[in-house]
């Protein structure tokens, strides 16, 4: 079992080196990756998922327990320690959901007799996160953006069961993101979230700040921020209630704004 993952700094788009020599993630760490759009957040998690070894445009290297990824991480998805949920929420494959999950479970080496239950648990997990439930018979190409994202999060957690989970902008997908984070945080893994969301950021142990394609700095969540987290959550809950009211076709009243206006 992997204990820690290290990103050895490379450089940004203009060649300017990363602001830190290395960043080390220990098992159980929850890390946010923040920065303006185009600042290199997705590139950073892609470097990790590609097991970069000074062979990607950033020149970064990723080490697992201090050494580069062995070839079997690439050759055998069952040995791949990383589950990545990208921002791509369109599926191109025309398979039914159950067949897709079954095939993925097979290549991730889930035992034959357990596959049906893994598929069922994955769907149940996904359906906790979406408004409109996904059925086994739906085709992957028919799913909405939110349904796809929910299914991918469930797939990463149940099918892949990987020790390292990379999530690119969980908040953008129209899913119950606080529920997703609660479900995910029950598991002891390294979580890296690309995010613009204050609530998710304050859940993290520390955050990596990106700028111009490079790692600008690493900020540990401090006592002041932790103390403010519950106020941020209340504010976020108010916004979530407003979103729900609008989705349900309701009107916004002073009742939803309780505590802020």
């Amino acid at each position: 079992m992997i204990q820690h993952v290290t990103v050895v700094g490379g450089h940004g788009r203009s060649g300017e080196p990363d602001g830190v020599e290395r960043v080390e993630f220990a098992m159980g760490d929850v890390v946010a990756i923040v920065g303006p759009t185009g600042s290199g957040k997705t590139t950073l998690i892609n470097d990790i998922e590609l097991f970069a070894d000074a062979n990607t445009p950033t020149g970064r290297r990723v080490l697992f327990d201090g050494v580069p990824a062995p070839m079997e991480f690439r050759d055998d998805p069952a040995r791949n320690p990383i589950a990545l949920i990208t921002q791509n929420t369109t599926f191109l494959s025309d398979l039914p959901v159950a067949e897709f999950l079954e095939t993925h479970a097979r290549i991730r080496c889930v035992e034959t007799q357990q596959r049906a239950s893994v598929v069922a648990r994955t769907l149940a997990f996904a359906n906790e996160l979406t408004g409109e439930p996904i059925s086994e018979a739906s085709r992957m190409t028919e799913l909405s953006g939110g349904q796809t994202r929910a299914l991918l999060i469930a797939d990463a957690t149940v099918v892949c069961d990987a020790p390292i989970v990379l999530l690119d902008e969980v908040e953008n997908a129209g899913i119950h993101r606080t529920r997703a984070l609660q479900l995910l945080r029950r598991q002891r893994k390294i979580f890296l979230f690309v995010t613009h969301d204050p609530r998710i950021t304050l859940l993290a142990d520390y955050r990596i700040v990106m700028q111009g394609g490079r790692i600008r700095q690493v900020l540990r969540t401090d006592e002041t921020e932790r103390g403010l987290a519950s106020a941020v959550n209340r504010l976020d809950d108010v916004l979530a209630r407003l979103r729900d009211r609008i989705r349900e076709g309701g009107r916004i009243t002073a009742a939803e704004m309780e505590g802020v206006a």
Binding site: N46, E49, P77, N80, T86, N88, F91, S93, F100, R106
Partner: peptide, 23 residues
């Protein structure tokens, strides 16, 4: 880079089903 990791791995499985000896 155009598809999700899960879809990439399922595509890999489909290749292996047809051509188990191909790297």
């Amino acid at each position: 880079d155009r598809i999700s990791q899960a879809e990439r791995e399922v595509f890999r499985a489909r290749i292996q089903d047809v051509a188990p000896g191909v790297r």
